[in-house]
Structures are given as C-alpha cells and as structure tokens.
Design a protein around this nucleic acid. Structure first.
Lengths: 201, 201
DNA sequence: CTGTTCTTTCAGTCTTTTCTGAAAGAACAG
DNA sequence: CTGTTCTTTCAGAAAAGACTGAAAGAACAG
C-alpha cells in the first residue's frame, strides 16, 4: 500500500468499520480512498494504492455504483474511467440512508405487513402479531421522519440537528399557543398544502 | 425448526437482515425468536426451536448479552437460565443506538481526531485533513443530536418524530418572534440551565 | 479492419467466519 | 461429598465470503 500514513490509517479504519456494518472490507477501503482523495481516481490506481487485484477493484466499484455512492467521469485525454465521491458529505449521508431504506427497511416493512395480516394459527400467533405490529409501527415512524427531514435543505437540517432535544420546548410553546402557532405557520413559506398538524398535537 | 410458519418467517427474515447489518445470522435469529416469544426462553429450547447446536446458542446469547440486548432471569422451580428482550421496543432501539455508538462511532471519532491534529506530511495531507474534519463534524453533530433526543421520554420522542420536518416551521416562527419564544421557553418545565439557543439561530 | 488499452466476468483458490461436538466448569439438591 | 443438570470453552470441521488470474468483452484511435 503506497499511501501517506494519514491516508493509510483512515483507509484501514474505514475498511474495518465497513465490515462491522455489513460492507465488505475491500469496498470500504476503496470508498475511503476515493473520499479522501482530492481528485477522481482510475481503477488501476486504486488497485495499485490499496494493493488489490484489478478485478477486485472492478467488483468493488461495481458494488459502490449499485449503491450510487460513487460517480464515474472521464477526464480529457484519458480513456480510463475515473471515480469519485460527491463533494458534499451530506449528499453521501442522504444516499446511504436512501439506499439502506430501499434495500433493507422497505422489504422488512413488507414482510411485517404480510405477517400482520396473515391468519393467526394460534393464540400465541396472535400475541406475536401484536409484537410485529409494534415493530412495524416503530419502523414506519422512523422512516417517515427520515423521509421528512431528508426533504430539508442542508442548512435547515443542520439547524434542526443542532437544536436537538430543545425543540421539545418549542413544541410545548406551540401547544400552549395553538392559534398563534397556526397563523404563524400559515405565513411560513414552503408549507405544502394539507400540512396541518395531526389531531393529537 | 419447529416453529409456527409466522414465527419462522419472521426469524428467517430477521436473521437475513442481521447479516446485512454486521450481525451474524444466528445471533439475529436468536434475537428475533426471543423478541417474538411471549415468555422468556431457556437456551436449550432456543437450540431446539432454531435447530442450532446448544453451544452455538450459548455463544449467541453471550454476544447478545455483551450488547445488553437480552435479559437473563430465573423462573421459580427451574434451574435453567431464561432469556428475554425488553418489553418496551423503544428501549431496544435506545440500547442498540447506545451500543453502536460506544463500539463504532466513538472509536471512529477518536481516530478522526488523531488524524486531524497530526502533522500533515504534504499539501495533499492538508486537503485530506479538511475532508476528515468535515466528516468528524458531521458525525459529531449526528451523535450530539442522538444524545439529546435519547434523553427524551418516549412520549416526547414520538411526538417529535411525528412532527417530522414540520418542526422547521416552528423554528421559523421562533426566529421571527425571538422574545416570545424565549419567554415561553423559560416557562417550560425540564429546561436545563445553559440551554439557550446557540448564537447562529 | 487491427491493435491497443481499459473493463468485466467467473471458476477456482484462499481466507475468514461460523458452527459443532467433546470436554471441562459451575451450581446446586440430596 | 456425589450425582445431576445446566453452561461455557475451544479445537477443528464446515460454510460463507472475498480475491485472483485468465480470458472474454468493449471502446476507440489510427
């Protein structure tokens, strides 16, 4: 591996973490290298820097492309394909969330729904179905939230995250002054129609 | 596997998902079985139901205990140890988040910090350090947020999640009427000291 | 076309991880 | 103590997953 010690440390750690999150070590290292590089890299250079076979890199890049995590581009005067990560790290997070959802969360919700509506074969199946419903509702709540906030632009999202749990006191303010809250919200830009509070708030 | 079709389907899917999230399939299945069961199960019963060796179950339970995801209890008149998951699914989510953070996120932040303060060996190391700083700050923002909201009780948390991105309009209301917002917030219970808005809001 | 350069595929090998059975250890009832 | 029941450990077997080299495929310049 012919990398600066800094890059090497990052790449190795990231590969390790990847394998703990269900991503193969090689793929994690390739991604880390692309992320930390200041320019798009061609596959043969990745292979050489990480000391993997060229074919392994090809497969890793294929995997990363299927996750939409890397961009392919051609540089003038070079026939090779060059790969890079998005410049905006928030875009990476959004992509990751979106893909995990599509690949793992949605299929899980679908399985849970099927099992919840299935005819229970016993009393204990009925109890089990209650548990599954609880899990289903929780996951749906979380992905619903994720959907909502992923619509925000980065500035708003950061603001929201920085506010953290203190947002709850805003909520309480709103509950205490419902009329003011509503009117003010009507004035807010970008409020889509049908966006009213749910009854329980 | 001597399980009702419903349980079997759930256990198999959960095992599959586990392996995509860096959790071994067996461990995922054991957890799924404990979750869906309406009573604590002893290890030998798990082994028999899932058709694993008794020793495999022992190792799986050890793993789950190290994640604090299962509870061990003794039933009167039975010498065997019985295992169960918490009744409150939100507690499971909190534990999972806490443990992943302790095991993966914190070590990553620590590596990133080390690399960011290291002496760069080149111009390109300096650029790399900027990228690492960006990643570090993003992760810190996310875990800071997670810390904050995990302090909320379940009712508040659900309320917040249901509100989704609409919370942004509350934020905007607050920005527009800062004095009112502040006064109202002072009145809110459970507002810890030093809880003022950051200057940028 | 032809030759060159780059990319992908895949069968087989190698590595890592998971799983098992056997044996040792622990807890306790009698 | 002793025997019984339950649990853990661990070396090796089995399975899964990752990686490679060789060969085929694709893109294009001349």
């Amino acid at each position: 591996m012919e990398l600066s010690p800094l890059t090497e440390a990052f790449v190795l750690h990231f590969g390790e973490m990847g394998s703990r999150w269900g991503i193969n070590r090689t793929v994690g290292q390739i991604y880390a290298l692309l992320y930390i590089s200041d320019r798009p890299l061609p596959a043969d250079e990745i292979a050489q820097k990480l000391d993997f076979s060229r074919s392994n890199v090809s497969m890793g890049l294929k995997e990363l492309q299927s996750w939409r995590l890397v961009r392919l581009q051609h540089l003038p005067g070079d026939r090779r394909e060059h790969f890079s990560t998005p410049d905006d790290i928030w875009e990476i997070v959004r992509t990751l969330a979106e893909q995990r959802r599509r690949r793992e969360v949605d299929p899980t919700l679908s399985v849970l729904r099927d099992l919840i509506v299935a005819q229970p074969a016993s009393e204990s199946d009925k109890l089990a179905q209650n548990k599954l419903r609880e899990m289903h509702d929780l996951i749906e709540l979380l992905v619903g939230w994720a959907d909502e906030v992923s619509k925000l632009d980065t500035r708003e999202l950061v603001q929201l995250l920085k506010l953290g749990s203190r947002v709850v006191s805003l909520l309480e303010l709103k509950n205490r002054l419902p009329v003011l809250g509503r009117n003010a919200r009507r004035r807010a830009e970008a409020a889509p129609p049908g966006d009213d509070m749910e009854p329980e708030f």
